[in-house]
């Protein structure tokens, strides 16, 4: 379906369980290099888990997760930490270090991983902050920033080391329309300008569909479908259609699994 066969991330038959619950069951997902791939699905279907699997913060029960050809779950602690230097992740909360100001937050990855002189670090930090439009906020502490600004600073920090792979965990949640627009533009811009590969995990349909080159829809521990946004919109799979059109009831039921309503009521009566 895609014209490329150059995949930066390749999940092969990945199974992951949390306790008794199966989050992923034999899932295959491939992320094309240089593109923006959206991972969509209802809340709680394990989209964030997917990013954590790729970042090896979680280990799958089964299957291989290849990033640049390396099987991530098999790496030792040391190799893993160096592999992660090529990944950037934008967390839902931003996850800025609260005891450091904006400048130091963005400079942090540079300070730990490089031996660059101070003025060079300053140049890079200013460059990255300029890219997200927050060069003026350099002296502020994280708790002085709004939610959207926090996320942009976190974005600047995530791209400080020029990663090959950027992962966005629900970047649009809780944003006002303006900062949402800013983020959408930034993700697209950074992806094209820096030659990144981006994975956007989200359930915000319109925004994700508008920037993604390719979409995966996951649910029930399965990949329900994948393809270009336009193709998915017109999919004849009822589950995909329910999600893409935002219908409240359908293959994904409105009700959480429960015993029969009438029985439940009668049982209460009887107990009394």
């Amino acid at each position: 379906m895609l014209e490329t066969d150059d995949f930066i991330v390749d999940l092969q038959q990945v199974t992951f369980r949390r306790g008794e619950r199966v989050i992923f069951n034999n899932v295959d997902i491939r992320i094309p290099r240089g593109k923006i791939t959206g991972i969509m699905g209802p809340s709680g279907c394990g989209k964030t888990t997917l990013l954590r699997l790729i970042g090896a913060q979680l280990r799958p029960e089964n299957g291989r997760i290849l990033v640049n050809g390396q099987n991530i779950p098999e790496l030792g602690r040391e190799e893993l930490f160096s592999a992660r230097q090529h990944m950037g992740m934008l967390f839902q909360s931003g996850a800025l270090f609260t005891d450091l100001n904006v400048f130091e937050n963005v400079a942090f990855p540079l300070r730990v991983h490089t031996k660059l002189p101070e003025d060079m670090i300053r140049d890079i930090v200013l460059l990255k902050l300029q890219a997200v439009g927050l060069r003026g906020a350099i002296e502020l502490m994280p708790d002085e920033l709004s939610g959207g600004m926090k996320r942009r600073v976190a974005l600047a920090r995530a791209i400080a080391l020029d990663p090959e792979l950027m992962m966005y965990d629900e970047p649009f949640v809780g944003q006002d329309p303006i900062s949402m627009g800013v983020l959408v533009r930034l993700i697209r811009l950074l992806n094209d300008a820096l030659g990144l590969t981006s994975i956007v995990v989200s359930h915000d349909l319109a925004e994700t569909a508008s920037i993604a080159d390719y979409l995966y829809v996951v649910g029930d521990g399965q990949v329900l479908g994948h393809g270009r946004p336009d193709d998915l919109m017109n999919s004849d799979n009822p589950r995909i259609r329910q999600f893409m059109q935002g219908e409240p009831d359908g293959p994904v039921p409105f009700h959480f699994p429960a015993p029969d309503y009438v029985d439940d009521l009668l049982q209460k009566e009887r107990r009394r």
Binding site: F81, G88, Q92
Partner: peptide
């Protein structure tokens, strides 16, 4: 809770060490 430890990990810094 604020994902600072996770984000350290993703920056490639071991929070156990750092």
């Amino acid at each position: 809770a604020t994902e600072q430890l996770s984000s350290l990990e993703m920056i490639g810094v071991d929070p156990l060490k750092y």
